[in-house]
Design a protein around this nucleic acid. Structure first.
Lengths: 242, 242
DNA sequence: CGGAACATTGATAGAGCTCAAGGAACGTGG
DNA sequence: CCACGTTCCTTGAGCTCTATCAATGTTCCG
């Protein structure tokens, strides 16, 4: 049972771009199906060249680059609404790998159709550029975090950002935000060793700043930034194509 | 004496996209003039919202984010051919500041014209997306470098990448590639303290790997990657709009 | 029950930061 | 032409943060 674009649950959120009927019909024509993947599946490999494009409809995953020295940099976490293969679609091949962390449902689009975007739907094409630009902004924020902040600050920054994204997608409950990743994933995202991440987390837990246990992030003190010499950084309101 | 797009020196390089006559005429119409800036000028501030878009025609500069703790992350170095305000053009405001390192000549475009791209020139619009995507790729590489590599590796990586970009633009002479930045800039780009950068550089110099002196980078051993447990990472061939 | 996968904790070492002091290069003004 | 300040790069010493190595818990599952 494939979700029609018209009924896409993501569209109900403010976060996403309002499409008029024409735009919607176009997207629907563009969408060629759905895929469901188990947790822990590698969806795309660095260097691969998928004939299909994907959008996350449900579930979470992560993008990472593997380095020849065996290390891994997690580039970003993937949320519902994220366009997954823009790079491959535009640049010809993937520059990082993509893995699922939970079961994920993806909308599948035909890659060749991307040109139709540009020719027939300038607004959607603009959205694509916008998405790429936001992605760039995300990364520059992460870069600044990894390059210039201490372990505690990075951890707080990373979890705060994660939590904010969850909130925007109404994934947060009174209990906190779901965090279906391993500590090792977070460590690789922040440029820390798992051991040090563990220590840092328990420190932040004691300080009542933030906590991650059993797949849930809890921001214990919204105003905790100052506790650890942090600052808040604004996330742009995200829009979505489909 | 403004350079006509037709005579743009950058177009002669293979690196850049071939435009047909129509595309060229379009760009020319889009271009509203040129600006020359002295070295050390702040061109755009984080949060600003320029009514104009720029493209680097000559000279070099850098993008950086300032953090509330006083630190600075240099996000990227700017070369001739780089689109400078894509973010502001697409997202509404700049998410980082831009500064010149040498005298720079910029092509100026009217920001409102960006929509014309999408409506009338789908190929150019695609190029824009492509550019944003490449930028993203650049950043993810830098992120991996900062997050997962040692100081020596980062320095080599940074200088090698810089050198490669110079080569592609035929800026490299038998003497090496011009590096008109301060060590402090490089340090802020790599997430190192200036002191440690200095020490690391002198080590790499002794090892005959790479050298930066008096504004020139020299890669002393193209095959030096192994000397310091490094790897080469490929830079995508860059294209340019204008 | 035993084993895998993951998280935590401890001990130790090393990488990189900070503070502080010297040099070198350059421009300016006397 | 030389003193000087400034700006930048280098070098040194000490210390902090974080990585690494190793061991112990924990949870989950077969």
């Amino acid at each position: 049972m494939v979700v029609a674009c018209e009924d896409c649950p993501l569209r109900k959120m403010k976060l996403f771009e309002d499409l008029d009927d024409e735009g919607l019909a176009f997207m629907q024509k563009f969408k060629s199906g759905e895929t469901v993947l188990e947790a822990g599946t590698t969806l795309l490999m660095e260097g691969s060249n998928s004939p299909q494009l994907f959008t996350a409809l449900e579930g979470m995953g992560l993008r990472y680059k593997r380095l020849p020295n065996g290390r891994r940099q997690v580039v970003n976490f993937i949320f519902p609404g994220d366009f997954i293969v823009l790079q491959a679609g535009v640049m010809g091949e993937m520059k990082h790998s993509v893995e699922t962390a939970t079961q994920m449902t993806l909308c599948v689009f035909d890659r060749a159709g991307i040109w139709t975007f540009f020719r027939e739907q300038p607004e959607r094409a603009f959205d694509l550029t916008w998405l790429a630009s936001v992605e760039e902004y995300f990364l520059s924020g992460a870069m600044a975090s990894i390059g210039q902040m201490t372990a505690a600050q990075r951890v707080f920054w990373g979890l705060m950002r994660f939590h904010t994204r969850c909130e925007r997608l109404t994934l947060t409950t009174s209990n906190g935000s779901p965090f279906p990743f391993l500590h090792a994933d977070l460590a690789d995202a922040l440029g820390l060793s798992p051991e040090h991440l563990s220590r840092t987390l328990s420190k932040l837990r004691k300080q009542q700043v933030v906590d991650v246990t059993e797949g849930v992030v809890r921001i214990l003190d919204e105003d905790a930034c100052r506790k650890i010499g942090m600052f808040e950084d604004d996330l742009p309101e995200q829009r979505r194509l489909i």
